[in-house]
Amino acid sequence: MLLIPCPYCGDRPEIEFRGGGEAHIARPSDPQTIDDQAWAEFLFYRTNPKGLMAERWNHAHGCQRWFNALRDTVSDRILESYKMGEKPIGGGRA
């Protein structure tokens, strides 16, 4: 079970969270103006990287806040987490 660092509550076990998939996929500001292909890419296309990945988490059974975390999909190590609207510092957590 992962130990996930909620930026608001601290380290908490994975069962308190709900995963939200890849992070930093901005919803188009005017969806009606983009074509089917671009919309499909927003909806369905994900990078599914082997290695470092920024992903969304919701502390569903806790503070209910959404945040992002950088996780290595090979080792499952979580390098850092950060609030919505923030950027990862990229250095990793101690």
């Binding site: 709900r18 939200g20 919701n58 959404w66 919505m84």
Partner: peptide, 10 residues
């Protein structure tokens, strides 16, 4: 959760 997601992130 769906509502919170849009409210907090979008």
């Amino acid at each position: 959760a769906h509502m919170e997601d849009y409210l907090q992130t979008e």
